[in-house]
Write a protein that binds this DNA or RNA. Structure first.
Lengths: 236, 236
DNA sequence: CCAAAAGTGTTAGGACTACACCCATGT
DNA sequence: ACATGGGTGTAGTCCTAACACTTTTGG
């Protein structure tokens, strides 16, 4: 009979993604203390007593961003538990993925953490702990979610144009999307978007109709990206 | 500054599925001690010092089944951490999904645990802890995996007929699959199966060709099931 | 010969890509 | 007028579901 019950701490780490100026951004903090001092990291914290995992994730999210929460998507990504991932001792991390609209700016003054949006390309390879790995999983999950669900609307404001929505796809996938066919596919998917009645003029060109997100969650048929190697296992 | 670092134990629980006599089965133990004494539960155990999560999952799997491991699929399902899920204290569980071929029988004598195959229909609603919830997630994930990956072969022996493979789909999905179109789809998917050259005669009818699993992991295009409500979020 | 299972051919329909084309606005 | 982005129509192609039909065995 094994009595080697290992006690450990559970961290909740968040990969919070948004689209800003045509670039995919992730919310990152700069670590104020060792380990990994002055290095970028995903926001997160330890699970507290009596707290559910999702509760903890929402709490961390609110601490780092000023979000109403309605317009946002939060989802469990997976668990990362390599024995040596944290030099302070055995810490297992539950990673969550959050898709957020382009916020004015995260609450910069909260705690000592200087959370700010960073282009994903700038931070990949430079993150503390195993957060690079978490971010990679988050990106692939986000790309896959856009194919099979309506979650692209989570990146948009309450009202958005077809072009806004298409930009989300292009930025997250990193490949161009045909505007004509995209519009048709979205409108043919019942419950994806609903016309809000308004229009929005841009710098030039015909003003675009405004939409709100619809009730559907899953895309059937999906909107598939092209330049993808589909030989390996899909994101779970 | 919060110093309420909560220490807890991490359990690894396994939902090990197989197909036996046309019915989907899950490996279950009977709990010998409280809590939930004499009740059915998924096999599992606590994470040990210096052990990776996947390592722990494989260790539990080997303790409960006599598996060569080559022919088997093991995958992280998610994490279940409701504060009151275990009356003994705060225990967070990492759930893994395993797809296994129809084994002769699990090693019944291992430890005090009397692990045995149970039809999924017989145990749903009766499992200890939150294992009912874990099993539900496992089932949905398995169904989805069959749509998008070649993992159905993980349920089969080393050599199998097209009928064997089709039975896996029917049993896991719980809906009939057209034999003609199924065969074509599988054979048109490069790398799904490879003919082994042999044939196998059944009680009656033309003998079926035997196949081995091929190198492909992902199905493109997928093999979609019908009777599914696709309005909710897909399995992650 | 007959039943049963394996496997092939065929046809109608849906969805996709690619592109020609029209619409509505600012300059 | 014209550049620019929003949006519609259409042709060819691919994939699919559904089912008639052929092949190969045991009884």
């Amino acid at each position: 009979m094994n009595r080697d019950h290992l006690y450990l701490r559970l961290a909740v780490d968040l990969a919070i993604l948004t689209v800003r100026d045509g670039v995919l951004n992730v919310l990152a903090i700069e670590r104020a203390k060792p380990p990994f001092q002055d290095q970028a990291a995903l926001p997160g914290g330890f699970l507290r007593e009596g707290e559910d995992l999702v509760q903890a994730a929402w709490r961390e999210l609110r601490e780092e961003t000023a979000l109403d929460g309605e317009t946002l998507h939060l989802e469990q990504l997976g668990i990362f538990g390599a024995p040596d991932r944290d030099p302070r001792g055995r810490v297992v991390s539950v990673a969550y993925l959050a898709l957020a609209p382009n916020l004015p700016v995260p609450t910069a003054g909260s705690d000592a953490s200087a959370a700010q949006w960073r282009p994903v390309a700038d931070v990949t390879g430079c993150l503390a702990f195993d957060h690079d790995e978490i971010l990679a999983v988050a990106l692939e999950r986000a790309r896959s979610r856009l194919e099979f669900t309506t979650l692209a609307t989570a990146f948009c404001d309450k009202e958005f144009t077809m072009g806004d929505l298409r930009e989300v796809y292009q930025v997250v996938w990193g490949e161009p999307v045909d505007p004509r066919n995209f519009s048709r596919k979205v409108l043919n998917t019942e419950g994806f978007v609903e016309p809000s009645g308004g229009r929005r003029a841009q710098d030039t060109g015909r003003p675009a109709a405004l939409y709100r997100r619809g009730p559907a969650a899953r895309l059937n048929p999906p909107i598939l990206r092209h330049g993808t190697d589909r030989s390996s296992l899909p994101t779970p």
